[in-house]
Amino acid sequence: MDTILATEDLTKEFLGFTAVSGVSLNVRRGSIHGLIGPNGAGKTTCFNLLTKFLQPTRGSIRFDGRDITGMKPAEVARLGLVRSFQISAVFPHLTVLENVRVALQRARGRSFDFWRSDKVLGQYDARARALLEDVGLHTHAHLLAGELPYGRKRALEIATTLALDPVMMLLDEPTAGMTHEDVDRIVALVRRVAQGRTVLMVEHNLRVVEGLCDTITVLTRGRVLAEGDYAGVSRNPEVVAAYLGTDPAISGAQAHG
């Protein structure tokens, strides 16, 4: 198996409270990998560790054959491991087009040019519009990002991430708080953009997980409880118990699956 991201004994303690505990995760290149678990299980903390927004207490992280455990977050992003945030992360007072251009500018240069007019950024417009078209936002290009409805903000976030052409994307609850219609759009989008790259996603909607993910890791109280494909994981009695014990909404979806 060609592993793109591997962690060993990844652990994060906050003042004695262990949020992530001895997690060894292996993500296969080219797969869509789901990370699920009840609220407070440590999923977001895992993302923060993987993208170096947090320093692990113990353990190591390898990405694309490189040990990234001691790196800074911007450096990890430059290697092609790019994250989204659980709380939608756009630049609210930049236009939709400018949001995408900011990412293009980083990847393609000119980000230190302080003596030039920002009109030179027009050279990235064509590419930015193409990316926006990809996520169905091209008609919104000149709106301020902060004015977009929630679902569209998530789509913009994905377009911005894609502008970096990342090797691997980490998506933290990309469909949370969305309408059915928006969820379908995001699912289709993730499936499309996952062509030729790896995706690791935190997702609460188990139907989305079932439809998208090749492999699923279940986290509870910071530990890996189970791992495998959807069918295998959903039959695991420990997983069912964990969900039944914490979140009836999800266990309902579980019964459905």
Partner: peptide
């Protein structure tokens, strides 16, 4: 005025608006 409205100024604006997001896009803020 030019600095503020330059490609560099655009990055500064992005950093001020959402620094973690700028970092996650690979900016050494």
């Amino acid at each position: 005025s030019r600095v503020v409205h330059s490609p560099f100024g655009q990055v500064l604006k992005a950093i001020r608006e959402n620094e973690p997001r700028a970092i996650s896009l690979g900016y050494r803020v």
